[in-house]
Design a binder for these strands. Structure first.
Lengths: 201, 201
DNA sequence: TTTGTTACCGAACATTCGGTCAGTTGACAA
DNA sequence: TTGTCAACTGACCGAATGTTCGGTAACAAA
């Protein structure tokens, strides 16, 4: 697994991929704007200028990271299981998948959820994200119209609160010690679909 | 170069309070690290140096804003209603109050929830916030132990998901056009305590 | 009129920023 | 042994950063 390659032996050093994944880690620790190229260089164990050998610059690093998150989300909402069937079942599937993508691509989604729109790159990502949000919003509305979810709460509000809970996972989830994506979505769906209150009290 | 000589009609003067509230607004738009003193000056309608007449500097501005959020939260968890009675009722009260504080002090709490720990000021705020989180966590655990909330979900997970939903309010709530704090907590508690699913489907 | 205070401006400060570029290194092929 | 080239260094650039400071317009009290 380490040395049995038919092609040339592995060269030490970085490539665009390793630079990206380490950079995104630092972005999430210190915030994108709070991260200098010097910070990245330190984390990579090279000098600032070496970074420019692998990637065109700081903003491109951000753009690639955000695309990774957004591509995952859009793959999901174009899946058949998000498009046909009872709205409540589609919603449940989308919640489960969202949690899975969030866990699988944790650092990238984390970065996406913190974008504020300070550059063209960020504004473009925000626009794609809003498109995703609109899909979810529509789904909740359909579930309300088909009578699957309670009628005494505004669907728009429910969407935001529900996915607020989903998205909060990026704030505290630790892949190493945390639960699995399935365990997370189980707990989340139990709470939001069936409620926390036990019949006892 | 459009503007001419500066001896125009004098603006209304600022004070530390007006500087703080406007600054926090900009911090939330662009992120603290993404905001320059030049940005603040523009929003205030004065030059950079005028800001230093009212406040000691950028980081003090942040510190004062974070204290405003944290003071509200700690006022709540020292209230009698958070300390005595059935855990499930205390939890419900704390959720309602959290939403209220979040709405009342929206910009300050928003800023608090985005702090990442890049400076001593930020780390101090994070530590106070963790103390608050520990209180909430304990409350959920008590509610689980008294049998008021379902036993098939981990209380730690529930805490995070529940308050993930609460805290998400800062991401989308608009005081002008949005619902009241009561309407928000009603919807939130219906969803998380009783569940979204309607009996129909 | 003089003096003082308040609220600000404009220029400058040292530092840090993202980014460029000529050159060095070292592993490998020939 | 020499040449190639991916990967990198170190010196450097102009612009932007947070902050300081000397000055000053406007007004009020004396």
């Amino acid at each position: 697994m380490a040395t049995s390659s038919p092609t040339r032996q592995r060269r030490r050093g970085h490539d665009p991929e390793s630079v990206l994944s380490i950079a995104v880690g630092v972005f999430n620790e210190r915030g994108y704007d709070g991260t200098s190229m010097e910070d990245l260089a330190r984390a990579l164990g090279v000098t600032k200028s070496a970074i420019y050998y692998h990637v065109p610059g700081k903003e491109q690093l951000l753009a690639r990271a955000l695309d990774r998150a957004l591509d995952g989300l859009f793959e999901m909402v174009t899946d058949e299981r998000a498009l046909s069937g009872a709205a409540i079942d589609r919603l449940e599937w989308v919640v489960r998948q969202s949690v899975r993508i969030l866990v699988d691509r944790l650092p990238y989604v984390t970065l996406l959820l913190r974008v504020r729109g300070n550059s063209r790159t960020e504004r473009a990502a925000l626009e794609r994200r809003r498109e995703f949000d609109r899909f979810i919003s529509g789904l909740v509305k359909e579930a309300a119209e088909e009578g699957s979810i309670r009628a005494d709460v505004d669907p728009g509000l429910v969407t935001r609160l529900l996915f607020g809970s989903v998205n909060s996972i990026t704030e505290w989830y630790q892949p190493a010690r945390g639960a699995s994506a399935d365990a997370l979505s189980d707990a989340l769906l139990k709470m939001t679909f069936d409620g926390l209150r036990s019949g006892v009290a």
